[in-house]
Amino acid sequence: MRIAKEIMAKKVVSVKADLPVEKLAGILWSHRINGAPVVDDDGQLIGVVTESDLVDQNKKFHIPTAISILDSVIFLDRAKTVEKEISKMTGATVGDICSREPVTIREDTPLDEIATIMSEKKVHTLPVLKNGTLVGVVGKADIIRTLARG
């Protein structure tokens, strides 16, 4: 069974949190990637930003559903969810729209576990860490390429 170290991209295209969102699309497109790790000035992983985060900026806003009972208004959507959605839609920098709790894997994570994580957590860009340091990225294209090569 192959492991992350064997299939990961070692030349990691990462971005900083202060990068304007308008520039992110160009970076993802020019490198033909669907996401990138977000790093601080010391190169430490602080999040992941993906094409989906960019797409979310252009979607219609869902007005929270509410019901009125005895002069009280009860919102059926959670306030934090609505706040997060508004924040992503109005974000100006990568730091505003990225996921701040990225799902990561180790170099020795087997392919079947990587696929399971991607499927269950609905993520397609997995930073690979070695002793807490970013050493690579596994994207869904890396898995498809590995499967195609047998």
Rank of each mutant, 00 (worst) to 15 (best):
F61M: 05
I144H: 11
I7D: 05
S99A: 04
T116E: 14
P20H: 12
K16D: 13
A148Q: 04
P37A: 11
S119F: 14
V138C: 09
N58K: 04
A4G: 05
D142P: 08
K10M: 15
K59S: 15
L54N: 01
K11L: 06
K59Y: 15
V38W: 01
V49Q: 11
L134A: 00
A9R: 11
S68H: 10
K10C: 05
V12D: 14
K121H: 03
R100K: 10
A9C: 09
V103Y: 08
L45N: 00
L76Q: 08
M8Q: 03
K5N: 07
E6R: 09
S72M: 10
T125M: 10
I3N: 11
S52L: 11
M118Y: 03
I144Y: 09
V12K: 07
L129F: 00
P127M: 10
P20V: 05
D41W: 07
V73A: 11
A4T: 13
I46C: 05
W29S: 15
T65L: 08
G132V: 07
E83M: 06
H62F: 13
D112A: 12
D18K: 05
D56S: 09
F75M: 12
L54Y: 09
H31R: 13
I46L: 08
S14P: 01
S14M: 07
E113M: 09
A66L: 13
G43D: 12
K140T: 03
A79T: 13
A115V: 12
P37E: 11
D71V: 05
K121A: 12
S68I: 11
V15W: 02
D77C: 00
I67P: 13
G139M: 06
H62S: 14
M8F: 02
K16E: 02
S72E: 15
S119C: 13
A66P: 11
G43E: 15
Q44P: 03
E51W: 03
A148I: 00
G26E: 05
L126E: 02
F75G: 01
I105C: 02
L111F: 11
E6T: 06
I7Q: 15
K140I: 13
D71N: 12
R106E: 06
K80P: 05
I74Y: 14
M1H: 09
H62V: 08
F75P: 09
T104A: 15
D71S: 10
L134V: 04
K60N: 12
R106A: 11
I86G: 01
T125Q: 03
H124E: 14
C98S: 00
T81L: 12
A25N: 08
R100N: 04
R78A: 13
K11E: 07
V94T: 01
A9I: 14
F75D: 13
I7T: 02
R32N: 12
P110G: 10
T125G: 00
I114C: 04
A79P: 07
I63K: 14
G95N: 01
E107L: 15
M89I: 06
I3K: 11
K16I: 06
V12T: 06
P37Y: 15
